[in-house]
Simulated scan of single mutants.
Amino acid sequence: MQKSRSVVAMGMASCLVLGACTSIVGVDKPYHLDGDGGAGGDASGGGGGGGDAACTPDEARCLENRPQTCDEAGRWQDEAECPSEAPLCQGGSCTTPRSCEGLGAICGPRGDEGCCASLVVPGGTFDRGAAAPRLATVSDFRLDRFEVTVGRFRKFVSEYPAAWPAVGAGANPKIPGSGWRAAWDPELPVDRQALLSMLRCEDPYFSWTDEAGDNEILPVNCVSWYVAFAFCAWDGGRLPTAAERHYAAAGGDEERQYPWSGPHSAPEPDESYAVYGCGHDGSCELADLQQGGSRSPRGDGRWGHADLGGNVWEWVLDSFATDYPLECDDCTVITPGANHMIWGGGWRSEKTTLLTSAFEERPPKGKFAGAGFRCARAR
C-alpha cells in the first residue's frame, strides 16, 4: 500500500448529497443525512417501531437489535439485549447473522470463537483533532470482533446476485439517507462469475479460494467498497462510519495512539501486537496474512475487537474529504464519485499505519489485496 495520505484524526460532518456536490450541514447541532438516498427499510432487522404502539399479548418484535415481547396489558416490554454471539434481532429473536449460519466456532486465536461475534462499543465523545480539537460523538453501536472472513463471504457469494441490496439497505439508523442507493447498482459485479473475478486481484495475494479450505478463517480481501457495503447490508449490518471505526480503535475517550495502548501508555508496535510490515523487504507471501484474532488478546482494542491495527485495511462508509467541522454527532461524509477511506493498516504496511488516526483514500471501485472490511450493527 502507498504511504498514508494522512494520519491526522478528523472531525467529519454529515453530507447532504445534491447531484455531484457535497454540502456540509448541521455543524452546530446533531444532524442527519437528508438527501436523495432515502433511509430505506427498518434497520432493526425485525418489526421495530415506536415503544408506545399497542400490541397483542405474546406478540414479539425487534426494536433495533433488542427483542421485545407484548405483555398481558398490551404493552411492549424489552427483553435481554442480544448477546455478542447472536447479535442480530429478527422476528423478535436473537440470531447469528446469515454469513455464520452453519459455520461453527472457528475464529479467534484458538479457533473456538464465532466469526460473527459483534461487541458493543459504548457511545461517547472523543477528540479526532491534531493541532485543533475536533470533537466527534458517536452513539452506542456494535462492531464485529473480527474482520469478515473468507468463510463468511462464501455464503454471500453462494447467494449472489440475489444478495444485491435493496434501496435503503445497510443504513446507519442514526443517519437517515445513509443506506444503499440505486445509483450504485452498476458498480456491483453483474453476476457471480464477475464477483469471483474481482476476488482474484493482485495474484498471488488474494485470500479467496473457489472451494472451502484452509483460508476460511483468513480475512477476505480484494473487495471493493460497493461489495463491502452490499455484504454488510445482506448480513443484517452496515459499514461503520469513519468516526465509529476511529472511536473503537482509539478506545473512545482514552484516545489511544494504538488500539492496544492504555490511556497513558503507547507500546510501540511489534509482531506480538499486530500483523504488518511483511512487504518492506519484498518477501511478502499470502502466508503472512493471518487468521482474525491471531494477536488476541494482546493486540485487542479497549472493547475486545481484534486487528483494529494490521492484518487488512478496512473500508468505512465515508468518502474522503478535506473540510471538516470542529464538532459533529453521528456523522459521515458521502460524496458521489469521490474516493473512500480505509483504516487500520495492513499486513503489507509500515507501522505508522497502525496508529488509530491513520487512514488512506482509495477509489470505491478498487480492489486491493491489502484491504478488507468488518461490519457494524445496531446495539
Rank of each mutant, 00 (worst) to 15 (best):
D127N: 15
G50W: 02
G124N: 07
G310D: 03
G40S: 11
Y273I: 05
G41S: 10
R379H: 12
R298S: 13
N311D: 09
A249C: 06
C70V: 00
Y258V: 05
S23M: 06
D42C: 13
E202Q: 10
H246C: 08
D112I: 06
W260L: 07
F153K: 07
F229C: 02
V167K: 10
C201R: 01
D112G: 02
G26H: 04
R379Q: 14
K351F: 11
G46C: 12
A86M: 12
S23Q: 08
L308E: 13
A131S: 13
R152W: 00
G252K: 04
C62F: 05
L135T: 06
D58P: 00
Q290I: 00
Q2N: 11
E361G: 13
T149N: 08
Y276E: 03
W347K: 04
D191W: 05
V27P: 12
Q290K: 15
G38Y: 07
D185H: 05
F231R: 03
L143R: 05
G47M: 03
W260R: 04
D323G: 04
D235K: 09
C201Q: 01
G213N: 08
S93A: 14
W76T: 10
K365Y: 13
A182D: 14
A358I: 06
R5L: 13
D288T: 06
R295F: 03
A130R: 08
W184E: 15
L218A: 02
P240E: 02
P363I: 09
S296V: 08
G370V: 07
E159P: 08
H340P: 00
K29M: 04
D318S: 11
Y160G: 01
C94Q: 14
E211L: 07
Y160T: 02
R128I: 01
A338L: 01
S178H: 06
R238D: 01
A162T: 00
D78Y: 11
A321F: 12
G48P: 13
P87H: 11
N339G: 00
A43I: 03
G252S: 05
G301Q: 05
S272V: 01
T335F: 03
C107Q: 13
D203Q: 09
D214L: 06
K29R: 09
P267F: 02
N215Y: 02
A266N: 12
S4H: 10
C116Y: 09
V138T: 09
D210R: 02
P67M: 04
V220A: 06
T22V: 03
S4I: 11
R302I: 01
Y31W: 06
F126H: 08
S99E: 15
Y160D: 03
G366L: 11
V8D: 14
G262K: 04
R379E: 14
C331E: 00
S178L: 08
A166C: 06
D144C: 07
I217T: 15
G91M: 09
W347C: 11
G370D: 15
A132D: 14
L33Y: 03
Q77M: 11
S296W: 08
E79N: 13
